[in-house]
Design a protein around this nucleic acid. Structure first.
Lengths: 354, 354
DNA sequence: CTGAAAGCGCTTACAG
DNA sequence: CTGAAAGCGCTTACAG
């Protein structure tokens, strides 16, 4: 088949070719009524086994696939979901979306992607499209746990879950357990014998910053350690990590022997600066990051021990809960903090497990 | 409203509350028939202006939104698309998806996200879901231009476009213009006075590697320059860039004064190694990357001049073409190579424009 | 056991 | 100008 043939085909198949095989075709081919065909295909009611077989054979032979929209009209269930996100960059959204999409696909549910880019007009447009298409529910995914998306959720009875975003009171939220993850990381460092564990992190106004700092403090406390200094809050960037090294390591007397960083970029910048300054990682200083952004974590010299937020799992759990809500099952409202996973590489000085 | 109230609501609204307002409610409220209501709302046919107004007022008052699935059943157009992708990581897919989704949303078309992860079973599952949901067309997006996804496209008459993936003969493909982009980057370096412009890039078996190398050669030729050495092909990683620096710069006599890198990670690793070796960027060596992966390009010291593949635009154009195909408009088959954009930062030694 | 009828929510000729 | 009827593709009581 050459190109021009394809073009012609798409021009011509307006009526005839494009007409898909319907249950009526199947019924005719099997010599039964449409109602009987439906029952045969859906394994409902009692009927002669050979009739059922005849219908199913015809369906298979014709390649019949029931029209989901016709079914949706009857069942008042479209088996579709909307995923609204303002995370253009995709750092958080794509893993969440992939986890959601995979779990839903296994249950016959398809997911509409709505990229709204923090633009209220775009949000409204997409929300209306989701209403019109009669999605069964909505997943709202953001890039930080303390900010809501610029959407006014329609007052109509469509269940909504929130992932990695602020969750309104009485809503259903799914976020990584920042505090617990930080606690785990710092405990890991303490168990490895580190005693002066510093913390370098992102901007103060992020809830994730407070939570991770709290986990750091709790782990120090439970291990009988004191913070060598206040947490250093700044930016989520390599540059901040790089610049902070000098602040933290000028006083040779009071050097930390470990640094827990608020994200992988900070850890990367810090390690680069330490290396440039002749301080060895992990021998002199152990470093742990946060995010398991592989492209950073693997490329850091040495590779970075860090926390994986398990975003795929977050998307998956949010989707499954949304299905429960759609099915009318009772679900307790509130925020779920899902565990993160410590990924041990070389920067913490433990033997590598991954 | 507290949490328990919400739970109860979702349990109770099975029949009454959940029943949405239909055109019948609008018709009754306006005191006309359903047929008249439909015509009034769709601005079809002639009718008394006050009747039309009455219907439209009722619709607005009741918050009526027509059921897109009912319409789709009639019009044989669902105003939905499927986006199939195997790019879990999202490096390429998310910008493509965002560009596609935004352009489609403006035209009332919604996009199903199908993450198939190079798994044929998952691909089949999702493809069948797209068939069942009667999407009007399919966008197939990959992570490299020379590989097809593990899908057998159904033989039914649904238009398909391919983005950043191999495109079957007679198909419709959209890829970045790798050769042209490389040509632009190297010409830029030549214009800045660089004379010995080396090339360090990814694995040989990537078509993108050959194309970018071809662009490099053509630019050298057109500027009367000779390649200082063969292109160094290896990995798409920081590590490869880092290690390659020594190979390229050991011979002090024959040092390049510029390196065009196959991606930003290679450029980043190379620059790190040069810096560590006391070679200044851009003073001694100018460097240009490829991808404009901001998290790398901005964090590199100095910030990286690089090529942006304009993936959003790619997604957008692919979507618009798909709509044309769906509308039966004539579209020439074949591969479209869309231009990339040179983003000038500091690593090339030009004055910074961004 | 099987089929005719009614209906999901809408639109489109076609009568009045 | 307006409405009754038929129909998009399917399912579900309900008769036969």
């Amino acid at each position: 088949m050459d190109g021009s043939a394809l073009v012609d085909a798409s021009l011509l198949e307006t009526a005839d070719e494009r007409t898909r095989v319907t249950i009526r075709h199947v019924a005719e081919a099997a010599g039964v009524s449409v109602a009987t065909a439906s029952k045969a295909l859906n394994e409902r009611g009692r009927m002669m086994p050979e009739t059922r077989q005849r219908v199913q054979d015809a369906a298979r032979r014709l390649g019949f696939r029931p029209n989901a929209m016709a079914r949706a009209l009857i069942s008042q269930r479209s088996f579709t979901l909307g995923l609204l996100t303002n995370d253009t960059y995709g750092r958080f959204t794509l893993p969440i979306a992939a986890g959601l999409s995979a779990a839903m696909a296994d249950r016959g549910v398809s997911v509409f992607l709505c990229a709204i880019e923090d633009d209220p007009a775009r949000a409204k447009l997409n929300l209306e499209a989701m209403e019109d298409k009669r999605v069964d529910g909505l997943v709202v995914a953001g890039k930080r746990v303390d900010r809501a998306l610029p959407i006014e959720l329609p007052p109509l009875g469509m269940p909504v879950v929130h992932v990695n975003a602020a969750c309104p009171p009485g809503g259903f939220g799914f976020v990584p357990d920042d505090e617990g993850a930080a606690f785990e990381a710092v405990t890991h460092l303490a168990r490895l014998g580190r005693r002066r564990i510093a913390h370098v992190t992102g901007p103060r106004d992020f809830a994730a910053v407070s939570l991770r700092e709290a986990g750091w403090r709790r782990a120090l406390e439970e291990n009988g350690l004191a913070p060598p200094n206040e947490a250093l809050a700044g930016q989520w960037s390599e540059g901040f990590g790089f610049d902070t090294a000098s602040r933290l390591f000028t006083d040779a007397e009071n050097r930390p022997d470990a640094v827990f960083c608020g994200n992988d970029q900070i850890a990367r910048g810090l390690i680069d600066a330490l290396t440039a300054g002749g301080i060895r990682v992990p021998d002199d200083v152990a470093v742990v990051g946060f995010d398991n952004w592989e492209i950073f974590a693997q490329a850091t010299r040495p590779p970075l021990t860090t926390l994986d937020m398990e975003l795929k799992g977050l998307g998956r759990e949010a989707g499954l809960t949304l299905l429960d809500l759609i099915d009318g099952k009772p679900v307790a409202p509130g925020l779920r903090r899902l565990p993160c996973r410590l990924v041990v590489r070389r920067s913490c000085g433990a033997s590598e497990t991954q």
